[in-house]
């Protein structure tokens, strides 16, 4: 995990000390990266030139350095960490087994094994979760 904002590292230090560590009961367990020019945000398409800051972009990167998932939110709404954890578990399961995870999959839920026989027959083995 790396967090990135356009604040200075000294701002990160003080924010950790005065607020975050009090919320979490410990220091932030990941590097808080400073992106004062917005250069990193620009690389990922999340730097807002008008505001001079990065929006809430989140990128899930696998062990080969490939981006497998991304989410971009505007500033007023926070993220859902449970959804991030679900996606990590799903991609790890896929890379281990080759299986694919249908809509709404949760850990332990049924998966699909892509094959010629399965084409057009998913409805026989899987139904969308009822809301």
């Amino acid at each position: 995990m790396l967090s990135v904002s356009t604040d200075s590292v000294f701002s990160h230090k003080i924010w950790n000390e005065t607020e975050l560590s009090k919320m979490a009961g410990k220091d932030m367990p990941f590097p808080m990266v400073s992106d004062q020019t917005g250069a990193i945000g620009k690389l990922y398409g999340v730097y807002d030139e008008d505001a001079g800051q990065n929006v809430r972009g989140r990128f899930l990167i696998d062990p080969d350095g490939i981006i497998q998932a991304a989410e971009i939110l505007s500033p007023p709404v926070g993220r859902n960490p449970k959804e991030l954890v679900r996606q990590i578990k799903a991609y790890q399961h896929h890379q281990k087994t080759g299986e694919v995870m249908p809509s709404g999959w949760e850990e332990g839920g049924s998966t699909l094994k892509p094959s010629t026989d399965l084409a057009g027959n998913v409805w026989k083995v899987w139904q969308p979760p009822k809301e």
Binding site: S3, S5, D7, E19, R56, G57, F59, L60, I88
Partner: peptide, 14 residues
């Protein structure tokens, strides 16, 4: 490299 990593951008401290 070799690990799963999440990069999270956010607007600002505080």
């Amino acid at each position: 490299r070799g690990k799963w990593v999440v990069v999270c951008f956010y607007p600002g401290d505080f």
